[in-house]
Amino acid sequence: MKIKTEAGERHVLAITVDNEAGVLAKITGLFTARGYNIESLTVADITADHALSRITIVTSGPPPIIDQIIAQLDRLVPVHKVIDLNDAGEAHVEREIALVKVAGTGDKRIEALRMADVFRAKVVDTTLTSFIFEITGTSDKVDRFIALMRECGLVEVGRTGVVAIARGSEAL
């Protein structure tokens, strides 16, 4: 007997929660306990009094599972609101930052710098044999940049994961 798994589409969820101990564990634990995917997760508090945090989760699953994820998140006591930014009519902006360290000399070094320029990546640190680039964009763009840097002496990457926000004048 083989165990089957179902493919699904990518969704970006924005969640506001009470900024208290254990909330993140509760949310990530819900994903592991119920077998949902987490592709990326970011969290930071967003109010002046530090009472609320915003969590952005990139997940994937068939539509009924995405619905379940939202309903399950929504019933957790410290969760205020859950929005699926991929819902119809919810056009949104997504950004991710990566710090990309590339080591090399000569042509490789020049090629790295040239491509960074094309991607509008900033040089935030340099030595005679290395650069650290800062690149901001959609995850796709960051992926593509990192893939190119592999050819130019990539040694280390740090990524923030996705933050996202709906377009238009309304708040979550």
Partner: peptide, 14 residues
């Protein structure tokens, strides 16, 4: 205790 019971309670507090 809050860690152990996090997913078998409706809610918990320390």
């Amino acid at each position: 205790t809050v860690g152990i019971t996090r997913h078998c309670t409706k809610h918990n507090y320390l």
